[in-house]
């Protein structure tokens, strides 16, 4: 009898309104996509404030909570600008989203242990757009599948199981 396959999936969650629901969904999909007999280990890093008291799903190894740097002083004004119409709104959203994704990336980069752990995963998933930059920045540090969202994650697991 051969040893069961181990599949490590790293999930990076940035600024989302319901992080626990998003984490549970990704966990369910990851375990559902893995072939029978595979052991799926899921590690979650959440850069942001956890607004609810929900518990991680059964297979989630644990959620590492990281506090991002405090937003700069003009962030409220920037949010207002980003909600506007026309070119000013586009520029506002561009700046806001860039700052947000940089905050997530910088926060993660400061934790070398977590970066090393994610590098050891077979699939690293950015759960939301603010996490894309941090996962994208791993591209030269690991050969793992680096993906955004559940569909791409499931596809990556399928590729791994077919190979």
């Amino acid at each position: 009898m051969s040893a069961p396959h181990q599949l490590r999936v790293g999930i990076l969650v940035g600024q989302v309104s319901h992080p626990q629901a998003v984490i549970d969904d990704l966990w369910h999909r990851a375990t559902g996509a893995a072939p029978a007999g595979w052991q799926v280990q899921v590690e979650v890093v959440h850069v942001g404030t956890r607004p609810d008291s929900a518990q991680p799903a059964g297979g989630v190894q644990g959620i590492v909570q990281l506090q991002p740097p405090t937003p700069f002083r003009g962030s409220a004004r920037l949010s207002a600008l980003a909600g506007g119409q026309g070119p000013a709104g586009v520029v506002g959203r561009l700046v806001r989203d860039n700052l947000e994704s940089r905050r997530v990336a910088v926060t993660l980069a400061r934790r070398k242990d977590l970066v090393a752990s994610l590098r050891g995963s077979a699939v690293v998933v950015a759960a939301d757009p603010s996490a894309d930059r941090a996962v994208w920045q791993l591209r030269k540090l690991t050969g793992a599948h680096l993906v955004h969202g559940p569909a791409a994650m499931v596809h990556a697991i399928k590729v791994l199981s077919d190979s």
Binding site: H18, P19, P150
Partner: peptide, 12 residues
């Protein structure tokens, strides 16, 4: 196929 956080939370 991507599930919006709000919808997932609503079902939860």
């Amino acid at each position: 196929g991507a599930a919006p956080a709000e919808v997932l939370a609503a079902f939860g």
